[in-house]
Write a protein that binds this DNA or RNA. Structure first.
Lengths: 188, 188
DNA sequence: GTCTATAGCTTGATAGAC
DNA sequence: GTCTATCAAGCTATAGAC
């Protein structure tokens, strides 16, 4: 197949935000139209596959941003202590200090298609792998590094839920502040 | 009586499960009708307020079950070590070993009404308070107990998200296994 | 109290003008 | 590429028979 036409990044960003905030079923064409300032027919022109193609693009864009700005710095050689600081900064950016739900969470309710759920699981695996690598570089054993990575992601996801229910970003910001110790200090 | 009335508790239980699995917008009347084996008109007879009344009843029922079976045992005088074991059992029951999302999470996306979100926040507060009390009874200082309680709930909520995305209950079951140390052993 | 039937609106998606 | 106009299907909710 030929290269699919490169979609507009800004457009997909706006679409992705609607899916993150409202989930798959809550992201109606009316909301997507309002958020993008494009009529529904125009959205279908850009995404002939409809909502399924839009949510796939949103998930892919979220994964791309996350991979580039959060995970890729970890995969470079460097000081773990410096790397984790950058990761914390980028996570606060990605989640807007805890005000924005995680793509993985918002789209993992049973509404989405099977390929979407596979994409989410694959993104999570990449995240786990990168955090594991960072922990290993900090001196953890392979098994301990895997545990720390999972623990870190659990705390991020859980704190986002608490922050949303309480309408208070505190839990998320505290979870981020704990990350360096969790992932790079074997002596806890 | 050709069609005996389904007991309220059983009916609400079935409704609550739909809301937990699909969220507010995904819990359509068609799904609620199928899950309860009641026609839509019958559901409106029982809940004249429509979906809003149903979701309120579901949240209240979830909160009632949780308060009675998880939180109330903690509020009794007793050995923390024994109490936390019961709590773990009841949590595995409530979340069906990690296969069922948390009510707080599923209903906290911006679809619901304001009273619903207040009810969810209030349920979370009660949960935090009960876990804090348990930690205090185990010898934690008030501040440390509060931290442990929040940490415990973060790990439960986060592990549920991971379990759902990975389609693997492992993260949740491990989080539950860690709970006794987290909440009742100040010497970690 | 539950049902069938239906109203009225919103949804996802399409056709065709410009 | 975006728009207006429209469709069929789905949605929440109601009316009225039994």
């Amino acid at each position: 197949m030929a290269h699919p036409r490169t979609p507009d990044a800004e457009l997909i960003g706006k679409i992705a935000r609607v899916f993150r905030q409202h989930g798959y079923e809550g992201a109606s064409m009316a909301r997507l139209s309002a958020a993008t300032s494009l009529e529904k027919a125009s959205l279908y022109h850009r995404f002939p596959g409809g909502k399924d193609e839009m949510v796939a693009a949103a998930a892919a864009a979220g994964n791309a941003w996350f991979s580039e700005h959060v995970l890729q710095p970890i995969s470079q050689p460097g000081e773990p202590a410096a790397q984790i600081k950058l990761v914390c900064l980028r996570l606060r950016e990605f989640y807007e200090d805890g005000k924005l739900p995680c793509v993985l969470e918002a789209l993992s309710l049973p509404a989405g298609s099977e390929p979407l759920h596979e994409a989410l699981a694959s993104s999570l695996d990449a995240w786990l792998g990168a955090f594991t690598q960072l922990a290993r570089n900090s001196g953890f054993t392979p098994a301990a590094a895997r545990d720390r990575a999972e623990q870190a992601i659990i705390e991020i996801e859980g704190s986002l839920v608490l922050a949303r229910v309480k309408a208070d970003t505190g839990p998320f910001l505290r979870a981020i502040r704990k990350l360096p110790r969790l992932l790079t200090e074997p002596s806890i």
